[in-house]
Design a protein around this nucleic acid. Sequence first.
DNA 1: GCAGCCGTTGATAACGTTTGCCGAAATTCA
DNA 2: TGAATTTCGGCAAACGTTATCAACGGCTGC
Lengths: 350, 350
Amino acid sequence: MSEITLRDVARASGCSVATVSRVLAGTRPVGAETARRVREAAAALGYRPNHAARALRSRATGTVGLVLPQITNPFYPALVRELTHALHAEGRAVLLADCDDDPVAEAEYIDDLLSRRVDALLVIPADERRSRDAVAAAAARVPLVLMDRGCGPGIADSVAVDNSAGMALVLDHLAAAGRRRVCFLGADGTASAAAERRAAYAAGSGALDAAAPGRVALGDFSVEWGRAAVDLVWDARPDALVCANDLIAVGALQRLQQLGADVPGDVAVTGFDDIPMAALSAPGITTVRQPVAELAAEATQLLSRRLAAPGTEGPQRAIRLAPELVVRESSGPGAGERGADEADVAVPVS
Amino acid sequence: MSEITLRDVARASGCSVATVSRVLAGTRPVGAETARRVREAAAALGYRPNHAARALRSRATGTVGLVLPQITNPFYPALVRELTHALHAEGRAVLLADCDDDPVAEAEYIDDLLSRRVDALLVIPADERRSRDAVAAAAARVPLVLMDRGCGPGIADSVAVDNSAGMALVLDHLAAAGRRRVCFLGADGTASAAAERRAAYAAGSGALDAAAPGRVALGDFSVEWGRAAVDLVWDARPDALVCANDLIAVGALQRLQQLGADVPGDVAVTGFDDIPMAALSAPGITTVRQPVAELAAEATQLLSRRLAAPGTEGPQRAIRLAPELVVRESSGPGAGERGADEADVAVPVS
DNA sequence: GCAGCCGTTGATAACGTTTGCCGAAATTCA
DNA sequence: TGAATTTCGGCAAACGTTATCAACGGCTGC
């Protein structure tokens, strides 16, 4: 069985548990010869440190809790992947909790993770408003980084994409393509991504057409809403639908095709996030790609910094990363001006 | 700080730590009045048990490790979701490890999880052959359940969909629709799902057409391969492409549309797994839906059974669950015989 | 009324590590 | 060469919980 403890290694190598602990953890210099004997014995016996005991004694579990609203949201798997890889690279393990978009469940999971003594928490809050209390309480106990969505000001460090810059990229692109009758299919949720994207549209779309900022339909971040939203704005005879995320765009695209509209000939469609489906849809959907690996790297770095300097409550940081525009067929030249094929061209933000 | 220990609760409630532990853990009966006082004090102080200490003493962490090949594989998020929910419902937490399809990384993660003293492991092996040693070694230490893919015979308990039954559903459906020139676009990997599906095709397709079992193209489980595979079988003028999973089907569908083929008029396309994209593709892809929630429930139940009777090495179980056929537009009536609209009809296996 | 029993409770010893402290040996410096 | 300083290793005390054992009541039953 996995019963080999420090005592056994100590006995086998002829020294005390303390020395064995020191050479294995490298906390203090130890004689070269002794170190060799200890390492040999440990390897021979197949010693595996007991993380539970270590955690109890040193009050650090080497574990990070990751709380997210819905793993089935197609944007998150890539993020989870990058986060777990980045954290594992630092020797930490990841406790995963999917709260199913329910702030109450979210609070319970956070509580459970805290009682499991995670060293830190990564949270994508389910709801900007109703997640706040639980997140703030947790942030008071352990280093906590908010990702993707905000949770009110001054709660904790946060890392997210610059939604305004992303929306600006989209609007510039559509403007350059001569689109003017633009509509926004967004989400009315309190999640910060929803709010920021619709604010950015409201702020930027006026440059295309004075009435554009008013052509807005708000629902949620789903394919179903995308389908339904098209009908609500159809009377305005739009030549471009700016969607707040790729799921909405997929739904909009489907409904447009049902209605017999030509995409991009009659109307362009754009999304946000660049989930896998955006590239695989027909036509491919022009969208704003989030720098997922960089988001993960920034988040883990933020955590490491807090963990390295315990108690030191430095100023909170709100990191915003620049997204890039991915141009695909769904926003190609309109009916009048068909040009060359230009699919999947990535345009980094300046 | 989170410094409230059993001692504090004991002092506040006027009894010993032993009693407090007993009432809070419910391990042994305790006086009603005392229990009330203890619970009151615990609540008032906001006591949170220290899982690290508990784990050290009782040699059980209440934690399960989940090792999977690629969280970005669109079939897994739904499975992860159901697994975490099922496990959390039993009071366990989930340590997640994504090994990026690399058996070496997989072995390291398994090792790390074991040294973190997980009570049990859920593993979706990256490779049938090269994952075997690490999985077998782990299974000797803790209860382990293999999911989705096998890992050689007699290694551990396993839960998976019945791939043969699923493939049979597809072939029956195509036969009933009058398709005869069937081709199989599969994966040559050693993963058991790949092998079982292509074996089931080989065994069942002969009933449609004597040459069908020979019309096979093998690559991997990707959209890219699906696109490429179409060209390899196109000379055979197929009227149906049976794909080993939905990603291949999506790729095949794209390439067919590029070639100007009508789906399902000229050729039907079927997938396997029922990932979200299958429903959202245009046309929607007929596929075999895995009973994800039931798979998760069976797996956790299997774990619970092993955990309840420690050391009792009962016989290994290999549970196979019946899938259901989801008929969508991609396998509708062929060119000659267009009928009524029948989208998204689920036909459970008998 | 006394032996014996159960139901409750309190001390206390683990669980396997890390770590502060101290002694011994080895090294340096005057 | 003696004292000061460093280096190295051991002892033992934590960390917060659970489990074992004994003690102390108040019972029942004869």
